[in-house]
Amino acid sequence: MTRPPPPSFVRLLDMLNTIRQLSPFDTLNADEGLLLDALIVKWHERDDIMASEVMSDARFGSQPTAYRRIIALRDKGLVCLRTDSKDKRVKFVEPTKLARDYMASISEGIAALGQSPRTV
């Protein structure tokens, strides 16, 4: 049984999404943003975050989906994958300079909000 063609609004949204991806400027989608936020919290707790640990977190979807998002963050220069010297099957997800700069900008933004307002 053949499926009916998708409605126009579905095709329009898909096409707009595809056109948006033509842009050479890297941006994060909502899922990648969620993963990055979670990694930032984890990095503040400890340094050695294993990729398998992230993949087993149900918030990020299935394991293959979570892995794809980790790779997307790596391709956008936000994380790097370091192989464990003792067990080459283990990979650690570490922040790059870009991610550290991003975390610093968040801290600065929050600090600026906390400053007392200037009197005129």
């Binding site: 707009l16 989608n29 909502a30």
Partner: peptide, 12 residues
């Protein structure tokens, strides 16, 4: 360009 910068959810 317009979709990236005016409708983007997050920029890093």
């Amino acid at each position: 360009f317009a979709l990236t910068f005016f409708i983007s959810r997050r920029r890093v």
